[in-house]
Design a protein around this nucleic acid. Structure first.
Lengths: 171, 171
DNA sequence: ATTTTTGCAAATGATTTGCATTCTT
DNA sequence: AAGAATGCAAATCATTTGCAAAAAT
């Protein structure tokens, strides 16, 4: 379920759809539009997979540079209008992911190589809803992450004899 | 399922059990024991519920003060020897929780009042394991958090007409 | 004696913010 | 013009770390 190698045609469409939604949000909030930000929005929306602000800035650096301030401000706005979603895997920096037409899913994070993959489970979602209902807890969001080793990393680890267990990890 | 009001007898026993485990760990690592740290370990292990480093320091302040440095270092060691577990609910500070004789569980976090409650689900754990297995992902840990409003906060919210939706929240 | 622990202050690092300048409307 | 957006540098803030002094072996 890893998204990769999005064809050029598709990224253009995604970028355009995102900019429409973004501009609608800007108008609704009584803000102003700007070239810099629109370019950023298009680029970010078209990003494949999961990325940090730093990774994003590195990639954007190819063309004109963008200040961290504007980058973070745009990232925040895109989250406000649901174009973007962020995930905290405990490494210090947040990971972002385009949310345009991306149905909800949860993640597996490889402690060996940092690879992030996705999963969904109707069953888990249902059990979760039931648990919340029984506790009279009004569920508005959830975060479910699996940590461990992806297949290649696990194989690599099994070859060596001594393997260090992953230490403390904030759940 | 909220742990509260632990009787004095019980806290003493917990503190003692924790100090034994902690001292074993210290010896195993070739470190030295210390009064300051042992006092901290006993106090922390006996803490009920979920608390941040700041909350902890505030409570410990009643008796002699402890430096943040030592506090964090002890917190880290206690996690190393599984006396303590930490959780990140996205508020900036980590929450800690004594793990002595505390079976695994996941959490619900109230966006209204910050209350933290616990839940467990055999069903979810099983589905989780199956998902990992199918992806050939070697599962070593997981984090599952539900965000929303506890019963009192939900009632309070429904009384008012306009309720602000929780904004971006890193999952 | 030697090695570790402690506390203070300074460092870290991702993210945020103040403010003067530059866009948009 | 009037209000926002931008970039830079400075500020945040929880957590870490360097180092000299104090404690444990």
């Amino acid at each position: 379920m890893n998204r990769k190698a999005i064809p050029a045609r598709a990224t253009h469409r995604i970028a355009t759809d995102a900019s429409v939604i973004f501009e609608r949000h800007v108008r609704a909030e009584g803000l102003k539009s700007s070239q810099v930000r629109l370019g950023l929005v298009r680029a970010i929306a078209a990003m494949a997979g999961h990325f940090t602000a730093e990774m994003l800035q590195a990639r954007l650096m190819r063309r004109g540079s963008v200040s961290k301030a504007t980058l973070y401000r745009t990232l925040a706005m895109m989250q406000d209008c649901k174009l973007l979603v962020s995930h905290d895997f405990g490494g210090g920096a947040l990971y972002f992911e385009s949310a345009l037409n991306q149905p909800h899913h949860d993640h597996m994070y490889c402690l060996g190589c940092g690879a992030i993959s996705e999963f969904t489970s109707r069953g888990i979602e249902a059990l979760q809803a039931r648990i919340a209902a029984e506790a009279e807890f009004e569920l508005t969001a959830h975060s479910h992450k699996l940590y461990g080793y992806c297949a290649p990393c696990a194989r690599r680890a099994h070859k060596r004899t001594s393997e260090v267990e992953p230490g403390r990890r904030s759940g």
